[in-house]
């Protein structure tokens, strides 16, 4: 992206704001619905909590067409390579929300089959707590992610500092 080199800084700043505003309000989630959290994720899209108010209605199950991967549920080692492959297939810029304690840290499963947190295999932007987190919590996570997206520089440089949502 050589545009920002040719254009004066104030215009790049405005352009970055515009792009950030557009990106954050039209997030297309890729739901990696693995277990119980997936049901609360469905409830978030449901009539009461309605994630589409935040522009994130279009749940694209195709990674090629999505921005944010919501890992909802327990990741097992058998599923881990699949999750990583799906993440790799997503185009930049992409973010990851770890929904629930199983995705954040392995949850209540400390055993041979469960990945102790998806951050073993994926970079996570927002961690949520709850088993499962209420839909309100997921909406809060999406809002925190929106704050992060606004800070994304136009050339893709960004902070890797994750946010934690309770």
């Amino acid at each position: 992206m050589g545009l920002e080199e040719k254009v004066p800084d104030v215009m790049t700043g405005k352009l970055a704001d515009l792009v950030g505003w557009a990106r954050k309000n039209s997030l297309w989630p890729m739901p990696l619905g693995l277990s119980c959290c997936a049901i609360e994720m469905m409830a978030t899209v449901g009539p009461r909590f309605d994630l589409s108010r935040f522009g994130a209605e279009v749940f694209r199950f195709s990674p090629r067409q999505s921005d944010v991967m919501i890992v909802a549920g327990t990741l097992t080692w058998k599923m881990a390579s699949v999750a990583r492959r799906i993440y790799d297939q997503m185009p930049d810029p992409k973010w990851v929300i770890a929904m629930g304690v199983c995705a954040s840290s392995g949850g209540l499963y400390r055993n041979y089959a469960v990945v102790p947190g998806i951050d073993r295999i994926l970079p996570v932007d927002v961690y949520t707590m709850g088993c499962p987190p209420r839909p309100d919590t997921l909406i809060r996570a999406v809002m925190e992610l929106q704050k992060k997206i606004e800070e994304l520089a136009i050339d893709g440089r960004r902070s890797r500092e994750p946010a934690f949502v309770q």
Binding site: L34, T74, T76, K78, M79, N111, Y112, A113
Partner: peptide, 11 residues
């Protein structure tokens, strides 16, 4: 199947 095997019986 087995992509969600969380080892409950062992646990």
């Amino acid at each position: 199947v087995g992509y969600l095997h969380r080892g409950k019986e062992k646990h």
